[in-house]
Write a protein that binds this DNA or RNA. Structure first.
Ligand code: ZN
Ligand code: ZN
Ligand code: ZN
Ligand code: ZN
Lengths: 132, 132
DNA sequence: ATCGCACACGTTATAGCATAACGCAATTGA
DNA sequence: TCAATTGCGTTATGCTATAACGTGTGCGAT
């Protein structure tokens, strides 16, 4: 999905996520935008819905949070599954993909005639700094 | 983790999950156990916490639900990451592992010196029956 | 025996995450 | 102009999960 120009709310939410140094919950985003007129969760969720659709934001299912895409330029999402490593101590997220993993999972689903729509890979643990 | 004898509440929750033909939310489990004296969410969550610890139940992060382990005998979880394919139409879940996927992800984390604690792989889509 | 501890349990309250449903305004394209 | 689409704001509600407190029971150490 290519991203059209963002609306005001979408741009505000995206900006907050870009500036953050880690994933944010929808309600945290809401709090950061109260000064800009945001009053209700739906304003955030509606913007997030579009940003996810455009592929510029990812949702981390295992921690109910959202993060700006780390690969804004290359549209790597069009050719593979995105995986995340999430540090449970400092909150930092690393985004990557591995075509071999994609391939293996696709092989499995094909064998089962399962039609995959959306795949989540999230590794929780400790980043190098926090594990030391 | 090896499973000691289950307490009454743990056994009740586990039985509900075993009999279900798909994942259940904690609150759905609660409703199914009201006749057995369950009154509050914590009774379910506390039992689930132990069942997860024992490895006889899995949590599906992407849909906030719980499912009985499909491989009760082989303790396959001790030697690999568990992956799930979840049908978004009928709710059926298939549980599997792929050592090559584990290997690739472990390679990546080792390269980044990331200490993985818990990895989630969930494929949402349509099962063979529902996709037809 | 009884003390101390660990653990399961029950209850109430609260926190955190997400969506339904209504109505209005601006845009677009037939 | 009219209809359809999209974004927006508001209120209310629903779903998911945990905090905090207290009770009872079993069991080993003293
Ligand atoms: Zn990305
Ligand atoms: Zn860290
Ligand atoms: Zn299992
Ligand atoms: Zn199905």
């Amino acid at each position: 999905m290519n991203a059209p120009a963002l609306t005001k709310n979408q741009a505000l939410v995206f900006e907050v996520l870009e500036k953050a140094d880690g994933p944010l919950s929808a309600y945290t985003i809401l709090d950061k935008l109260r000064d800009h007129g945001f009053r209700a969760p739906l304003q955030v969720y509606r913007a997030l819905e579009k940003l996810l659709e455009y592929g510029v934001v990812h949702r981390l299912e295992s921690i109910n949070a959202f993060v700006a895409c780390a690969h804004p330029d290359q549209n790597c999402h069009s050719h593979g599954i995105v995986a995340f490593a999430i540090c449970e101590s400092c909150g930092h997220v690393m985004e990557f993909h591995d075509h071999e993993v994609d391939h293996r999972l696709m092989n499995w689903t094909r064998g089962k005639k399962f039609k995959a729509e959306k795949t989540t890979i999230e590794i929780r643990g400790l980043c190098e700094t926090c594990a030391a």
